[in-house]
C-alpha cells in the first residue's frame, strides 16, 4: 500500500500551523484558495509559480520543510498587495516575514542568503548607532556575503559582487549622493535596551514552544 501524500501527525502538523498563525497574526485557515493573492503577486513570475495561496496551503498541511524554504519566502518583497486583495484579510507577507524568522531560529540555510544578510546587517547597524549608516551597513552586508561565498571557495562571486557595488558607489559619489559624516543618536542606549528586551522575549517564547 502506498503511503498517503500528507499524513496527519498531530504532534507536528498542529503546532506548526498554530505557531505561524500566532506569530504572524493571520488566520490562515480562512483561506479558500480563490487565488486573488496569486494574481496580484509582484514576484509571481519570479517564484516558479509558488504563489501566496500555495504557501498558505503548505502551512495548513503542516509541511514545515517546504514552508520554511521556498522561493516565495525569500523573494517576497513585502509589497502587501496579496493582503489588500485577500477577501479574508490574510496578509501573506506577514507569513513570509514570520517564516523568515522561524527559518533563522532553526539555523536553516536560506534559499537566498543575501536577503537574510541584508536585513540582519541593517538592523544590527541601526541598533549599534541608533541610526543606520549606509556605507557601514553595506560594508557589513558585503562582509556577510563574502564569508558565505568563501566557505564554498566561490571567490569569483565575491569579486563580481564587489565590482557591482563599487560601480554604483562611484556613480553615487560623483552625484553627491554618498554621505561621509557619521550618523548616530545619543539615545542609542534606549535602542539597545529595546533590542535586549526583544531578545529576552524571543528566548521566552522559544522556551514556551519547546
Amino acid at each position: 500500500m502506498t503511503a498517503p501524500v500528507h499524513e496527519y501527525i498531530p504532534e507536528t502538523t498542529k503546532p506548526f500551523l498554530q505557531e505561524v498563525m500566532e506569530r504572524s497574526g493571520q488566520m490562515l485557515t480562512a483561506c479558500y484558495q480563490c487565488r486573488r493573492c496569486a494574481a496580484g503577486c509582484t514576484v509571481g513570475d519570479e517564484t516558479g509559480c509558488f504563489t501566496p495561496n500555495l504557501l498558505i496551503r503548505t502551512v495548513v498541511l503542516g509541511d514545515r520543510e517546504t514552508a520554511l524554504n521556498n522561493e516565495l519566502v525569500w523573494k517576497c518583497v513585502s509589497c502587501y498587495t496579496c493582503g489588500v486583495r485577500c477577501p479574508n484579510d490574510i496578509q501573506t507577507a506577514r507569513i513570509t516575514e514570520t517564516l523568515k524568522k522561524m527559518a533563522k531560529e532553526r539555523h536553516a540555510q536560506p534559499l537566498q542568503p543575501k536577503v537574510a544578510h541584508f536585513h540582519d546587517a541593517f538592523v544590527e547597524s541601526s541598533i549599534r548607532w541608533g541610526r543606520v549608516n549606509e556605507m557601514e551597513f553595506m560594508g557589513f552586508y558585503e562582509l556577510k556575503n563574502a564569508l558565505q561565498e568563501a566557505k564554498v571557495n566561490n571567490y569569483e562571486a565575491i569579486v563580481d559582487e564587489l565590482k557591482e557595488q563599487a560601480k554604483l558607489g562611484l556613480a553615487m559619489f560623483k552625484l553627491g549622493r554618498m554621505h561621509f559624516g557619521f550618523q548616530m543618536a545619543k539615545g542609542r542606549k534606549e535602542v539597545k535596551a529595546l533590542y535586549k528586551k526583544a531578545k529576552r522575549k524571543r528566548a521566552a517564547s522559544s522556551d514556551a514552544n519547546a
Partner: peptide
C-alpha cells in the same frame, strides 16, 4: 533614531 525600516519586521516583531 532609526525606524527599523522594512528590515526590523523581518528580524523581530517587537523591535
Amino acid at each position: 533614531s532609526c525606524c527599523g525600516a522594512t528590515s526590523a519586521g523581518k528580524v523581530d516583531d517587537f523591535l
